[in-house]
Amino acid sequence: MIRIEAATRRYGAAVAVDGVDLHIAEGEAFGLLGPNGAGKTTLVRMLSTLARPDGGRLAVGGHDTVTQAGAVKRLLGVVFQENNLDRDLSPRQNLTFHARLHRLDHVEKRVAAMIGRLGLAAKADTPVDRLSGGQRRRLVIGRALMTEPKVLLLDEPTTGLDPAIRRDLWDLVRDIRDGGCTIVLTTHYVEEAEALCGRVGIINHGRIVALGSPEELVARHGGPRLEDVVVALGAGGRE
């Protein structure tokens, strides 16, 4: 479903993503684990078509993200690291705009159903400004699901949220995964990658330094836990 070949992106002299090769199968839930500044967001933004690679190529569903961006966009749901919401508008208004922008049918019904699924009925008409961090994150994820994407990109879906709310969001992501959607998720949290992802890539300084299922990585690099692998590979520290 996703093929990344030698993808590179520079910002000035700095190399944010440095020759990443990665194949992700349809229906897979893939975790990209790495510290601050590792290049996770840059990779997600290139996959989303928003950022152009300086070298290499990325394809989603067989479509090139640069030359066939339109076809890629139709397959994707994207949840960026920041909650990019209209804060003066309500969840209902935010979802409605998104649905209309994508020219979905039965907009009102779909929006109401999504608000129900997200458990935001009580806040449906409250300005987003007055929602909690967890509620906003739910809303952003739910918005990306409105178009029933084949591939969902989740950039740090739970960073900064308390453990109970994170677990809540994990349930939501599992639900999406079990619906057959291909998921690429970035995270700093080892346990999040373990909980949600069948396969994990550890990224540091723009390179994938280890790749495999959590169990494989532990077996290959010495454990006893995935966390130890991350630390051993030098990807555990903060920059």
Binding site: S48, T49, L50, G70, K73, R74, L76, V78, F80, E82, N84, L85, D86, H98, L101, H102, R103
Partner: peptide, 10 residues
């Protein structure tokens, strides 16, 4: 960062 939504829409 809502502009990015528009850019990702068809």
């Amino acid at each position: 960062r809502t502009w990015q939504l528009v850019m990702l829409a068809p």
